[in-house]
Design a protein around this nucleic acid. Sequence first.
RNA 1: UCCGCAGUAGCUCAGCUGGUUAGAGCAUCUGACUGUUAAUCAGAGGGUCCGGGGUUCAAGUCCCUGCUGCGGAGCCA
Length: 449
Amino acid sequence: MSRYKSFVTIEKLTDHIGETVTLNGWVYDKTEKGKLAFIKLRDGSGIVQGVVFRPNVGDEVFGRAQELTQESSVSITGTVRAEQRAPGGVEVDVADIVIHQISRDYPITPKEHGVEFLMEHRHLWLRSTRQHAIMRVRATVIKAIRDFFDGNGFRLMDSPIFTPNACEGTSTLFETDYFDLGKAYLTQSGQLYAEASAMALGRVYTFGPTFRAEKSKTRRHLTEFWMVEPEMAYFDLNDDMDLAEDLVEYIVQTVLETNERELRALERDITKLEKVRRPFHRISYTEAVDWLRANNIKLNRKQADGTEIQIDFPWGEDFGAPQEEAIMTQFEKPCIIHRYPSEVKAFYMKRDPENPKTVLAMDMLAPEGAGEIIGGSQREDNHDALLERLRHENLPEDAFQWYLDLRKFGSVPHSGFGLGVERTVKWITGAEHIREVIPFPRMIYRIVP
RNA sequence: UCCGCAGUAGCUCAGCUGGUUAGAGCAUCUGACUGUUAAUCAGAGGGUCCGGGGUUCAAGUCCCUGCUGCGGAGCCA
């Protein structure tokens, strides 16, 4: 028995059939039928129906049941009974009711609402069954990630959130004043620091929030999201891809084991998740381009006069969402696309010795239209090659001195990747929009609540 | 930043070619009911038609403009 407060939760009610318990929670819904009142109570762990029968409890307790409104806080004492008709298999025959607070005019009714309205009430929306289920899956995903790395010889090495410069040089970052040192930026990736950490501890991962100031208005983007980034000394691209597959398989299978009830509440097609077993698909960028051309998937290209034309997909162009979606229609499992053209990828990625026009990069795309969940690469470990790439991208050499140092003092082949937590949870839960899978989403036009 | 869509009751929406006092379902409140699961039945209350300007005898409806939100592109996890 723990020293801190503990009481019976709805989640565990099947262990208490026949016993009298007190449940502490909130009224999810109530309906009355003459001398009968049905109170659906939620307590954060689940929902159970309490049955109040006037002749059994007397007028006073029944009057309290009648007084209850949606989301009123209440403690209910009663006997747990197995009940076939109940969704969770049990019901509570109520003997006593203690009202803590009566809620008035709760805005979210058990009816349809638009997304805009629900987002305005995100602080309350989290109480609804669907959001509750998503948040529990999210918690599992995060725990699975940490268990996976902690159990495989990795050490957690947090990266700073304030950074002096853009990590990849290209993205738009959030800017802030930093005392007398000028501007600081909110990190878009902990990777460069993870590389330094990997040279110190071998296998590391960073796990934290990440910020992008791009004005992305899609259901795949947030301005603030969580990313886990493993970085491994002495790993090449193939090792990197093997690790990424193992991680994703572990996450999905752990959710299947842990959150069956939640996935059912979300009406997720579990058979699709059961298929997420190694090996995943792997194709090179060049093979993917060949496939696009063979299947006549065109690229919309804007011309100087503003009109759009459709052209055959040119080798060297980066894939957009339409191309990625088309490629994934052939697969039921995630697919890794590797060896992209160097021009479309970040400066720190290592050139493919077998084809210097490409880099040893890889992206993992999830099926069912979920899109990119992982981006990674083998890193450039040669000092001069990295310096040349820095200069080519016009990045400030001074700011990257410490990063270049890693190639001067015991440089080794190393690799890593970043996995987007929200993208992964969106895929696993089948959520329509990424804003549903983080408790308080930050998007370009929303910072409240 | 670009392209498209939307804003009418607490919520989700309808409102045709501009024409009487702006409608429905749900929610709320009152009453009935011992098995409800989005209960049902009877009744009641509830409106700055996003803001501003214009056209017209007449504007929720047409025009201009602003605001807010949504989706997509680009960028990426």
